[in-house]
Nucleic acid binder design. Structure first.
Lengths: 222, 222
DNA sequence: TGTACATCAGTGAACGCGCGTTCACTGATGTAC
DNA sequence: TGTACATCAGTGAACGCGCGTTCACTGATGTAC
């Protein structure tokens, strides 16, 4: 019977080592990309032998899976926090706050963003529980957009979404709002991922302004 | 003095082997991702020893660089072809044709799309001549949008672009059109890259319809 | 407070693997006279 | 048409590397009486 909330020194130590392994893993990913992640290299950095890490992670794949989960969790938390903080503001401001939370989180560590939304590795399947987090993120977006009624006529895609709204996790928003939230996601991702990938590199303009302009477009007429 | 247009049998053979190496490389990339590309594995598939390939490519990096160049070239050609074919049509149809050419090209081989626009490998620098191709692609987009006058007031970002238009390669389009072409790019990439990465996987709706809806949005009011 | 035992962190050796790349060499193909 | 030479494709052995992972073991830390 472990008393919840109590930790033994050993448990604390374990948690500490696990955390350090992850920290170094993120540094490696930021430096050389996720495919270069090496357990042995991390162990060496920590002054330990390679096999020692198997006390803490069952395998390299296990570590990566946990990093993905952590990244997802962190993004969802950042979005939720921004959402709660902005809940009392005008609805436009709510959406803007969400957008900037996402961009800020992505800029903190681009490779972390790409670990979630970047090039998929054929054959790799993300852990199941991440879909729950994805739903949570969509829920925050739907909340933000619920207060902003769509202004145009219903589109064919709105109608299509009526029949495919299980991903909204029971959210009561009308399908035009689902559509709007999807568009919010894809448009932000479009600007953001190209910026993070350096595709605007030699172009000279300020990506932050392009992002802002795109956000304006999303809010225009509402 | 090589007579241009004439090839010796040896040259033809060389070209043939190089082409087969690349073909197998693309298959490997499609199957396991670009980071798994292995010269030895390709050689084995072709019934040759590993070192043999060094007659055809200076190094693994060299091969990848050439694949990137080829991918870029192929995309630019697809866009240009679609553009020329649609040049006589109404301007809206021109833009639509471009969008579908891009999506079609991407769906042919998602990993090829990601090799250009996907997660960057920290430290890797794309070959210089790809920037020329990127300019060519932008030129096609600018051509398509030139016929569609912007309908809203000039945005702050339009003004910002006045000072940063060297990437347009001397194209005479007004900066509002540059802005429009950029947005065209980022929005299509947003929907497309999430689709190709499988992010809409469990959601149930048809990504083609979302793409179409986003394209409609780009053309709305013009 | 002290002893006996169980738990667990970490080590070092080892296995098997595949990678990129170099090198000296063989044998076939093409070229010049 | 035939011979002498140069070019070039491909081989096999080898180098050095780092990887993930297993295993039997040591030694320290915590637990029970």
């Amino acid at each position: 019977m472990a008393e919840t909330g109590t930790t033994t020194p050993r448990e604390r130590y374990r948690a500490q080592v696990r955390a350090e392994v992850k920290k170094r893993a993120w540094e490696q990913i930021a430096t050389a990309g996720a495919s270069a992640l090496s357990l042995n290299a991390i162990a060496k950095q920590m002054g330990m032998s390679g096999p020692a890490l198997y006390r803490y992670f069952a395998s390299r794949d296990d570590l990566i899976t946990e990093l993905i989960r952590d990244a997802y969790r962190s993004l969802a938390d950042a979005i939720r926090a921004a959402s709660e903080k902005a809940a009392s503001e005008k609805s436009g401001a709510h959406v803007v706050a969400l957008a900037h939370a996402i961009r800020g989180w992505a800029l903190e560590d681009p490779q972390r963003y790409f670990l979630i939304y970047g090039t998929p590795v054929p054959g790799y399947h993300a852990p199941d529980d991440t879909t729950a987090i994805a739903v949570e993120i969509m829920a925050s977006m739907l909340d933000a957009w619920t207060a902003l009624p769509p202004d145009g006529p219903a589109t064919p895609f709105d109608a299509h979404l009526e029949d495919h709204r299980q991903w909204a996790g029971g959210h009561p928003a009308p399908s035009a709002v689902l559509h709007q939230a999807l568009i919010f996601w894809t448009r932000l991702h479009g600007v953001l991922s190209l910026e993070l990938a350096g595709q605007f590199g030699g172009m000279g303009f300020d990506p932050a302004l392009l992002f802002a302009a795109e956000l304006d477009g999303l809010l225009a007429g509402r």
